[in-house]
Amino acid sequence: MGRRTKMPGVNAGSMADIAFLLLIFFLVTTSIETDAGLDRRLPRENKDSVVVDYHKRNILPILIGKNGDLMVKEELASLGELRAFVRAFIDNGGILEGNQGHCGYCGGEADPESSDNPLKAVIALNSHRETKYGVYIAVQNELVGAYNELRDREAQHLYQKNFTDMDREYHRPETTAEAKADLRNKIKYIRGLYPLNIVELPQQQKSE
């Protein structure tokens, strides 16, 4: 029995096989899911519809047709020019200086036929029941893009930072509490300058 003085080492050669087996199991049972998208807040449901006295110039109607064609202010438009159009509409600032509601930070053309100020500018989005969801998302993306561009511009002007970067930084877990509080105020302020006013008109229920 004097031969058992040295312990034989456990063969680790099959370890790799075991690990591979586990790896393949996880590869098969899991999926890399996306968890990003466009955030939107639906309006509260109110039984009696509120009639808001809105002037026509403050509303930008966008209609997405059955085949994905766009109607902006009763004129055909392409998706590519939508962003610039929406931007010009929101940033118009139609009320002249000295009057109530004048938008001091707007850089638009102050066209009296377009919106008064960004707080009043409303985008009315309407789609057909047959409209493809992809097109709808593309339009929503352009709308958010137009708002983000304007917010970025204002944030650059005020804080020398992009709004979208500030927002991203706010949601990053490494950001300290003080920085977060500071960012929250700034984000809130910028959002207040250009609030996301998108109204979606409800479609008729499907008649079955």
Binding site: G37, G134, A138, D167, H171
Partner: peptide, 8 residues
């Protein structure tokens, strides 16, 4: 669909 103005 695809979009680029997205939030996590």
């Amino acid at each position: 669909p695809n979009a680029n103005e997205i939030k996590k």
